[in-house]
């Protein structure tokens, strides 16, 4: 069932001739109630797919913005169980927007892969990205997710050669995620011209839609990447809005959704503009 939600969304976007805007939020950031409100508002603000981060104490591939988001969520008692609970609540109001969970191995190992897969499918999640599980360690997790028709999305990176891409994409379904910079999230900026040939490589290796993430912060950059990829992921720039809103005591939800709106608009109009240029 769930794999079709991602496939259906990319089929619809292909028919529209545009790239997907994928919004990353940290579950429970800054707290459960606000996090759920943001989640429910994302599709209306223009998110075509949603990545929901589940917080981990030691996020080794994250830059300061997502490290801080995880800490805010953990300090408010966020857990993997509550993340799934939040997705179930979202599914009561939205049955079509795909949700991909993203995080680190230990909370999943702690729960047990089979139990996690059953619970995630029941909650209405569609896929999973685990930053610290490369293809070499992926088999037990991939088997557990397969049993529940959930997609595993193994990351492709600038250091993955063609031989590795084949291995990565063999165990990936839904869409391919290309990490556009060698580095942590939210620090280096991705360059569309550099990214383009890699997107082609990833597309050729797996035949899946390719979304690009890490290092995309502005509408301009998002639009540029949307011209060469099938989807654009923005995370750190969104969680930074949470921090900013808290700092100046503004509505967190309004601020995050406004940023989503401007990024989504840029992605939606990217290819139209490029035709008229």
């Amino acid at each position: 069932m769930t794999k079709t939600r991602i496939d259906a969304r990319f089929a619809a976007l292909k028919a529209e001739g545009r790239a997907a805007f994928v919004a990353y939020v940290m579950a429970g950031d800054p707290d459960y109630a606000t996090g759920l409100e943001i989640l429910k508002g994302l599709p209306g603000a223009g998110a075509d797919l949603i990545e929901v981060g589940f917080p981990f104490s030691d996020p080794m591939a994250e830059g300061p913005p997502i490290q801080r988001a995880a800490l805010r969520a953990l300090n408010k008692g966020m857990t993997l169980s509550k993340t799934l609970q939040m997705i179930a609540a979202f599914r009561q109001v939205d049955q079509t927007t795909p949700i991909v969970l993203m995080g680190y191995a230990n909370p999943l190992i702690n729960r047990g892969f089979e139990t996690f897969a059953r619970d995630a499918a029941a909650a209405g999640a569609d896929g999973l990205i685990v930053v610290d599980i490369p293809p070499e360690e992926a088999d037990p997790l991939a088997d557990a997710l397969d049993a529940e028709q959930l997609s595993l999305l193994l990351l492709s990176t600038p250091t993955s050669d063609d031989a590795r891409l084949k291995i990565i994409l063999k165990r990936t379904s839904g869409f391919a995620y290309y990490v556009s910079v060698a580095g942590v999230t939210g620090v280096k900026e991705a360059d569309a011209a550099t990214v383009a040939p890699h997107v082609e490589r990833v597309r050729a290796a797996g035949g899946l839609p390719v979304c690009v993430g890490f290092g995309i912060k502005t509408p301009e950059r998002a639009a540029a990447v949307a011209r060469v990829a099938d989807g654009v992921v923005v995370g750190s720039a969104l969680v930074d809005e949470v921090a900013e809103a808290l700092a100046v005591n503004e509505s967190v939800t309004a601020r995050v959704l406004s940023k989503v709106n401007s990024l989504a608009k840029a992605v939606r109009s990217a290819r139209v503009e490029s035709l008229t240029v």
């Binding site: 080794m60 591939a61 191995a105 930053v131 610290d132 599980i133 490369p134 293809p135 070499e136 360690e137 193994l154 990351l155 492709s156 990176t157 600038p158 250091t159 993955s160 050669d161 590795r164 990565i168 990490v179 060698a182 580095g183």
Partner: peptide, 12 residues
């Protein structure tokens, strides 16, 4: 043991 690292590091 094992090698639980991000893909970026795996080739290294």
């Amino acid at each position: 043991g094992g090698r639980y690292v991000p893909e970026t590091l795996m080739p290294l």
